[in-house]
Design a protein around this nucleic acid. Structure first.
Lengths: 206, 206
DNA sequence: TAGATTGTTAATCGATTAACAATC
DNA sequence: TAGATTGTTAATCGATTAACAATC
């Protein structure tokens, strides 16, 4: 299915609202009601949802159960997925233990580091392996998602390894722009950039 | 100074590149060279930089030192800033200890939680306080930036408190859309959304 | 001078919003 | 039927890119 970048970013938000409505036993939700909860206009939401075969009902809204199912299908939530993480510093540890991913049916099942102090320790429910085990593990487990939480100095080198073993999508927390082949997706989540933007708006009068 | 949302997001990236060039003793950098390091077109960068009085030199490029200084001024890096964090779980801890913020001259100087097990412990160099100390601390320290790393269930309630004590900008890691007055800025950094997008691109053939 | 790279305008692309007929 | 909310088209807005004269 073909969806714009901006729309794709909103789908997880819609899914979150629908999960909550479903839990609360709400049967239908209008685009305006969803929008109110997310600070998004109803028009925007209706437009985003046009790609689904599940249609809304005029004067009633969208069936929570059915739209939720539709989003689950789109986001691939029915099939459990595994991700690996490289870099088990404080941030890597926090991501590995983060509970919010379970709704997506994604588990960080493998963690790697190069620090002998860290290798062999347990984080959440995964044992940290030596980075030289990467290719063996990925080949035997069919993992296509990677999280990169390492210093900028080694980021590209490790990205190269990830590409080599067949990773298709990388969530990059390192402060470096990665060079990868066009078929590999990278999402940069540089925290310094985030804080810089937040800080800029904290200046009085901007 | 007046800069588009998209441009503002790129400024920290330019700053990063310039810092590195400066450290390496590079005197000038063209827009194309910067772009290559960031995966951005030269045209884009030149356009972004038009708002500065520091101009590039045709056939030479931009003075690394002077453009860096310009960005430092824009990002307010010459004046040290303090931020507070609410929620000292794994993620909150990782953010508090995160080293990448020091380049921005921003320090997370205060941390709050409501868990008696956590209150009083030290994270990095800050002692975790009881949330009921919030207003006292903010009043005596002139903090305007807040990081919210709490469960969704209590996010709005705490956002209200942050607004009440005069916080101007909130970095929201909780999976909830916050309702705040228009003069308060919120940046949502919901990690589940991030992973959902990354996972979507890991599906073969998309 | 010739070559490189700038600043800027105009064209294009993509995303959001307003408006409204269709429909339950 | 009247009222509410949908799906969709057209208008608008914002961001990116191509093109190129100006300039070192």
């Amino acid at each position: 299915m073909d969806v714009s970048k901006a729309t794709l970013e909103r789908f997880p938000l819609y899914y979150r609202v629908l999960r909550r409505a479903h839990r609360d036993g709400v049967p239908y939700l209008s685009s305006e009601e969803m929008g109110r909860e997310l600070g998004i206009r109803g028009t925007q939401i209706r437009k985003d949802l046009t790609c689904f075969k599940e249609k809304g009902v005029p004067s009633v809204g969208y069936s929570v159960i059915r739209l939720k199912a539709q989003l689950e299908e789109f986001l691939g939530i029915h099939t459990p997925k595994e991700a690996l993480i490289i870099g088990v510093g404080d941030l890597g540890k926090a991501l590995t233990k983060f509970g919010g991913f379970q709704h997506l049916n994604i588990r960080i099942s493998e963690a790697f580091d190069c620090d002998p102090e860290v290798i062999g320790t347990t984080v959440g429910s995964t044992v940290v392996r030596n980075i030289d085990q990467l290719s063996k593990v990925v080949n035997s487990e069919d993992i296509t998602i990677a999280i990169l939480a390492v210093p900028g100095t080694v980021a590209q080198e490790l990205a190269d390894k990830l590409v080599e073993v067949g990773i298709l999508s990388i969530w990059n927390f390192s402060p470096r722009t990665l060079v990868v082949p066009p078929e590999v997706f990278v999402r940069n989540e540089d925290l310094s950039t985030g804080l810089a933007v937040v800080a800029h708006h904290a200046k009085q009068g901007e």
